[in-house]
Design a protein around this nucleic acid. Structure first.
Length: 423
DNA sequence: TCTGGGGTCCTAGGACCC
DNA sequence: TCTGGGGTCCTAGGACCC
């Protein structure tokens, strides 16, 4: 087999960060709150044991926390970002093949030979020694299995925070002990649907029929099932790809009824999102603006609306984006409602100097027709022509093939098709 | 009074085009 | 002249993740 995946995940990351600088908090219940001290977004095991759920609204639980000696903190993302970098640096000492998956998780590719549980323990101890952050390590033959192993490492006290599912012959027993909703990619809706169809454990899902899965869970579900069987369908993303969507929104502390207030708030979010766009050297070709009332205040009249609009030209110019989004807000704004939230979403994101066309899709054996056509269009555009110059055999349907042949040039290997930049 | 913010991928349907 | 199958783009929405 050669390679295995490891998922290293920091335990209650935000709480652990606070504890690094306040050792007195160790072993005590601690909670970290979201923006505006809205909800609990991180809980120490001691806080979970008291029955505080993830996402608990602070205003409802405050008394309970005071009575039970729970410490709480407003989130400090600068601190968490900094400690995250230290953890990731530490992990990169173990392998050059690594994907930082989120602020508190990373996938590593490891050599499958050798004592994997021992390597897992080494990783765990090294991170703890260098950064003070406790982590759990899960190892498996695919990313999905590594995720599951990580979960077991956290759940089973006997595991000591490390679990390897790679190369084991008791996989059926292991998978039979895992609920289907604990698999990476199964959320509430799929859980319901699967249970209704008699699929309640990871083992059931692993043995399900491919066509059935494809039909009810799309190709994403199929990849998931293949991954459970030990066939890798997901791969590491070592360099972060530019964002395809950029969102900026906030809930207001106090609701607003005034369009001018909303316009000002929106302009702030647009500015912030436009900065992100420019930082990744992109431009935006469509904008969505949305607003909504407070859904928790059921007695108040409810209204939510969104509008999407394609820009005449892709841009990252803040005043232009503020101008358009303001007009869009005017269209969906209705008087008589108390608005709780307004936001903007940028989509249709393209490089600032054109469109990058790439066929690479590691999950398909052949490129998608759609992508291929994009490449053709891009090449034509960049050459100032309006005919197709090549196609890939067996992939493009007759009319495109005909055109390709008429043009006199084509290639049969899709991986030979270059990445093209078009104006 | 007080209930987060920011992402990903996939699918479907309509208008239009060749 | 007639036209089918197969494209395009756009928008909306569902499902999932941290």
């Amino acid at each position: 087999m050669g390679k295995v995946y490891a998922l290293v995940d920091c335990n209650s990351f935000y709480v652990s960060c606070e504890r690094v600088f306040r050792p007195g908090l160790r072993g005590r219940p601690v909670v970290v709150l979201s923006n505006n001290d809205g909800n609990a977004v991180a809980l120490s095991p001691e806080a979970k044991a008291l029955g505080i759920p993830f996402g608990a609204p602070f205003f409802k639980w405050r008394d309970f926390m005071e009575k039970n000696g729970v410490s709480w903190f407003s989130s400090n993302y600068t601190l968490y970002g900094d400690l995250s970098c230290r953890v990731m640096d530490c992990l990169s000492a173990f392998t050059p093949d690594m994907e930082v998956y989120s602020i508190d998780e990373a996938f590593l590719i490891l050599d499958a030979r050798g004592d994997l549980p021992a390597l897992g323990r080494d990783i765990k101890e090294t991170v703890a020694r260098w950064t003070g952050i406790p982590v759990s390590v899960g190892i498996g033959e695919t990313m999905t299995l590594a995720k599951l192993a990580n979960r077991m490492a956290k759940r089973e006290p006997a595991a000591g925070g490390v679990c390897s599912m790679a190369g084991r012959d008791d996989m059926d027993i292991l998978l039979d002990g895992i609920n289907v909703e604990d698999i990476w990619g199964v959320g509430l809706q799929y859980r319901k649907m699967l249970h209704k169809n008699g699929i309640s454990t990871a083992l059931h899902l692993m043995r399900a029929d491919d066509r059935w899965i494809r039909k009810h869970m799309t190709v994403m579900g199929l990849r998931m099932v293949w991954e459970l069987r030990g066939r890798p369908c997901l791969s590491l993303e070592e360099a972060p790809r530019p964002k395809k969507v950029i969102v900026s929104s906030r809930s207001f502390g106090a609701p607003s009824v005034d369009i001018n207030e909303l316009r000002e708030a929106l302009a702030t979010y647009v500015t912030r999102a436009a900065e992100k766009i420019r930082r990744q050297r992109s431009a935006v070709s469509s904008v969505t603006v949305y607003l909504c009332t407070n859904r928790f205040r059921e007695k108040d009249p409810q209204y939510s609306a969104g509008i999407t609009c394609a820009l005449p030209v892709p841009t990252a110019y803040t005043p232009a984006l503020i101008h358009y989004s303001g007009k869009m807000l005017d269209k969906i704004f209705k008087t008589g409602y108390k608005y709780k939230k307004v936001g903007v979403m940028f989509t249709g994101i393209v490089p600032e100097d054109g469109i990058q066309l790439s066929l690479f899709d590691p999950y398909r054996e052949t490129p998608r027709r759609k992508d291929l056509m994009k490449v053709m269009d891009g090449i034509n555009a960049s050459m100032g022509r309006n005919t197709v110059h090549f196609a890939a055999e067996g992939i493009v349907k007759p009319w495109a093939m005909r055109r390709a042949f008429l043009s006199g040039r084509y290639t049969t290997r899709w991986d030979e098709i270059p990445v093209v930049w078009a104006r």
